[in-house]
Design a protein around this nucleic acid. Structure first.
Length: 871
RNA sequence: GGGCGCAUAGCUCAGCCGGUUAGAGCGCUACGCUCACAUCGUAGAGGUCAGAGGUUCGAGUCCUCUUGCGCCCACCA
């Protein structure tokens, strides 16, 4: 459903712009979703009791390709069924040849610019996927846990008693095994006496340093922190600052390593339990508190992330973030709605380096080569050194070469002509890792157009106009595309970023595969059609708000599609007139309804165009809905039926011409939202040449000549009169087929009614109409006062219902009407008596209020008169 | 800890720059299978715009606070 929303909005824009005559390009495609895809295929294999390692890298990747072909075609099929008007000949995939070349080029360019480095650093590690993750791939979730207070005894207890030492508080006792120090705040009075002391790590009996750093919060826990540089970010920073050793006790698979001593081999959470038991038995567990803390989870498998020291590839983000910030601050990239600008900027301003290497097989291999001899030695040496020696590797000393995997490479995993920069040896092996999927996605706006080649597509279509996407990938994708565009092409990838809401279900939950609360758009399309789905979606897409879906929201689109179809059928089957035929030369034969509907049409044309230009999709849909259903069908079409029966040939001709013109233009206006139905109807009505398509027809322009405020005003008066009569009929339960008499009393403007007598007779089911300034009100007749407005005097609409009427009902009706009027008049009067209102409010507002009070009073006196007569 | 969004009719939501009587769809009520459409037509009922204070001649709309719900970010053990 999220895809349906996203692609519907994109398709509306692209179809609209195409009709406006632009070369509108929409490149379809998919990314390879590295970790997610690999997981799916691994799960499939698990059913066959095979692991990817048993299969081997090459065979495994082949399997993934097979799966990708299936899944990719599913996505494409969904897009087609939705009606997405992509350029299918340009379909791309992040792992296809061209995009892979772009990825390699990007890596090499960044490396050359000094923005890519390999480093030994604390990363987010998923023990289940067994790969490093970027910060964005970690989902923090509030978890109920505990805060354990553990006593670390002094090494020499000299004069101090057995129970002395320092109590530290921790949420992860198992990391104790990797502790190398205890830290306190330098000005914390409680720990002043620790000078010259050393602490003893429980269980392992290692000697721990005591360090003093202002970073420590005295208020938290006991004010003393255990320091585990290999498994905690803050501790890692302390380690760098104070030159601590990093001891990895938790291995890649989440089990405890040899360094964990007696716990080696245990799962990290098993180890936690056992350590707590052991501490307790040794009297070192001081107390346990309930504690809510937020813990990072893998965004793909929800496993608790283990911060782990690990050699990985990183991108220096500072310089790139600067480009991203400038994009909105200086270069005019625009978020819609605007509030996302702040979210985007905040992220860029606090950005950390991007870990781009992943320990999986499905993805782009990293174009880096390691000397078989020098590299392992270098890494081992680094691991034994204190952390103060820096994060990034020295590539020359480490025996690392970053180079294109040239065509000359004789076989997988080796590289001809490249030597180790340290020892000069030729035994180099390619990095086993692949790149983060987003490292290819962030190139999408230009990689899909042929970059790094200077193609015609690239110069024609880059930069693009608009990106339509969800808020959930502003960091993952949007911000990175902006940076990449600016860095690699010196030009921003798009101007507008339209951020639509997220599809949710009741309770505000995200609709997602893993929650199993999906509404399948294909199933909806099966039932009600793609156009109905698309119209419903557009109708509920208010600027950037999340969308809560339920079944009956689709009813709107379904019913509307049905309405459009039936109205079109009436028009098309009612005459074989073609819209191309000109209007008769005698414009005097244009009726008020004719002029009214054409005026409305030209109004709606500019309104819809404006709404689309402002990304107001719901506004677009609502205006079209209102126009088609109510103006067009309820009123004009009903009147057109009468006009088609006119003895005046010119009127019949005009009516048919207008109906066709209306329909043709309405179909065009609706086409971006409802492409299938409108295309079909457009052909059925014979618009355009037989081989033409509405998809490429011109977008309707407002016809200034059709603008006719006077006709709109007059017609609205007619509508009011008809509605008023219907109202009386309904109130007094006049059977629908029963024709009533209508008497209209008024001093002027009544010719409007006589001219449109047949319309009134039909639409209000009136048998006989009498007009006049002094028309008499028969005994027992119902009266309704139509107030003066828009250049019309007040009228009395009189419907004689002698013998049919319950006078009590009529009295009640009048009293209710009068009460409302009185309330309004009272508030206006008090307002007008307020001198500040008169002096401060704009003159036109005051005048309006005065006019409207006068009218109210006039109406009231009329009703009073009526009531008197009735009594 | 920081930030954002939402609270308007029974339900789901519109309401752009503050200005006559706050709108829609669904649901509901009454009547109607009138020759495009019962996925329909005509008419109607239904709202102290979350609460408090403020700015203003005037507040659903702007400001402050409060309450409730939802979301995002976060290297407080």
């Amino acid at each position: 459903m999220g895809h349906a929303l996203n692609n519907t909005l994109q398709d509306i824009l692209i179809r609209w712009k195409r009709m406006q005559g632009y070369a509108a390009l929409w490149v379809p495609g998919t990314d390879h979703a590295g970790i997610a895809t690999q997981n799916v295929v691994e799960r499939q294999l698990a059913k066959e009791k095979v692991t990817r390692h048993q299969l081997g890298r090459e065979k495994f990747v082949e399997k993934v390709w097979v799966w990708k072909e299936q899944y990719g075609s599913t996505i494409v099929r969904q897009l087609r069924r939705l009606g997405a008007s992509c350029d299918w000949s340009r379909e791309r995939f992040t792992m296809d040849e061209g995009l892979s070349r772009a990825v390699q080029t990007a890596f090499l360019e960044l490396h050359k610019a000094g923005l890519i480095y390999r480093g030994y650093y604390l990363v987010n590690w998923c023990p289940r996927c067994q790969t490093a993750l970027s910060d964005e791939e970690v989902v923090h979730e509030e978890v109920k846990g505990h805060l354990w207070y553990i006593r670390y005894p002094f090494v020499l207890s000299m004069s101090k008693g057995e129970s002395e030492g320092v109590v530290v508080a921790t949420t992860r006792p198992e990391t104790l095994l990797g502790d190398v120090a205890v830290a306190v705040h330098p000005e914390d009075g409680r720990y002043r006496s620790l000078e010259g002391q050393a602490l003893l790590l429980p269980i392992l009996k290692r000697t721990l340093k005591i360090i003093r750093d202002p970073m420590i919060d005295r208020e938290f826990g006991s004010g003393a922190v255990k320091v585990t540089p290999a498994h905690d970010m803050n501790d890692f920073l302390l380690g760098q600052k104070y030159g601590l050793e990093a001891i990895r006790v938790i291995l890649d698979d989440g089990r405890m390593g040899d360094q964990a001593g007696p716990y080696a081999g245990l799962d990290r959470f098993e180890c936690r339990k056992k350590i707590l038991l052991d501490l307790e038995s040794q009297g070192l567990l001081v107390k346990t508190e309930d504690y809510h803390t937020s813990i990072g989870h893998c965004y793909r498998c929800k496993t608790v992330i283990e911060p782990t020291l690990s050699p990985q590839w990183f991108i220096k983000m500072q310089p790139l973030a600067k480009l991203g910030i400038e994009a909105v601050e200086k270069d005019g990239t625009r978020f819609i709605p605007d509030r996302w600008t702040k979210v985007y900027l905040d992220w860029l301003r606090n950005i950390r380096d991007w870990c781009i290497s992943r320990q999986i097989w499905w993805g782009h291999r990293i174009p880096a080569w390691y000397c078989k001899k020098c590299y392992p030695a270098y890494v081992q040496e680094r691991q034994s050194k204190p952390l103060s020696s820096g994060t990034a590797f020295n590539e020359k000393e480490a025996g690392i070469v970053v180079a294109a995997a040239g065509e000359a490479a004789p076989s997988q995993g080796s590289h001809a002509g490249i030597r180790c920069p340290r020892c000069g040896g030729e035994a180099l092996v390619q990095d086993e890792d692949v790149l983060d999927t987003w490292f290819s996605s962030w190139l999408w706006p230009f990689s899909t157009l042929g970059w790094p080649e200077q193609t015609k597509d690239l110069s024609t279509f880059y930069p693009t106009s608009v990106l339509v996407t969800g808020q959930d990938i502003i960091f993952f994708w949007v911000a990175r595309m902006v940076m990449a565009g600016k860095f690699f092409l010196r030009q921003l990838p798009f101007r507008d970023v339209y951020i639509h809401g997220i599809i949710r279900v009741e309770g505000g939950k995200k609709m997602s595969k893993s929650l199993g609360n999906i509404i399948d758009p294909l199933e909806v399309i099966d039932r009600i059609g793609a156009d109905a789905l698309r119209f419903s979606i557009a109708h509920m897409t208010s600027e950037g708000q999340d969308l809560y879906l339920s079944e009956n929201k689709f009813l709107l689109g379904r019913n509307f599609a049905n309405k459009l179809w039936n109205a079109s059928r009436l028009i098309i089957e009612g005459s074989d007139q073609r819209p191309g035929e000109p209007l008769p030369s005698n414009p005097r034969l244009m009726t008020v309804p004719d002029r009214w509907i054409l005026s409305r049409l030209q109004g709606i044309t500019s309104e819809v165009t404006e709404a689309l230009g402002a990304y107001r999709f719901n506004d677009t849909a609502k205006r079209l809905y209102q126009f088609v259903w109510h103006d067009f069908c309820d009123w004009y079409l009903e009147i057109a039926k009468l006009q088609r029966e006119s003895p005046e040939k010119g009127i019949v001709h005009n009516t048919n011409w207008i109906l066709h013109a209306l329909l043709e233009r309405t179909l065009a206006l609706l086409h971006p939202i409802m492409p299938f139905l409108t295309e079909e109807l457009w052909h059925l009505m014979g618009a355009g040449s037989p081989d033409a398509t509405l998809m490429k027809a011109a977008w309707p322009e407002p016809e200034p000549a059709w603008k006719d405020p006077q006709a709109e005003q007059v017609f609205e008066r007619l509508q009011m009169a008809i509605t008023e009569v219907r109202n009386i009929r309904a109130t007094f339960r006049v059977p629908p087929k029963e024709k009533v008499k209508l008497i209209v009393r008024g001093s002027s403007g009544l010719d409007l009614l006589s001219q449109h007598q047949s319309i009134i007779l039909r639409l209000a089911v009136v048998g006989e109409m009498t007009l006049g300034a002094s028309a008499q009100r028969p005994e027992g007749a119902i009266v309704s006062h139509l107030p003066a407005q828009d250049g019309f005097d007040a009228w009395d609409l009189i419907v004689p219902l002698t013998g049919l009427v319950d006078l009590a009902v009529e009295r009640k009706r009048i009293q209710k009407e009068m009460e409302e009027l009185e309330t309004r008049a009272r508030s206006k009067r008090s307002r007008l008596e307020d001198s500040t209102f008169r002096s401060k409010a704009p003159a036109e507002v005051v005048a309006e209020e005065e006019d409207s009070l006068r009218e109210l009073d006039a109406e009231l006196s009329k009703w009073k008169e009526t009531l008197k007569q009735l009594n």
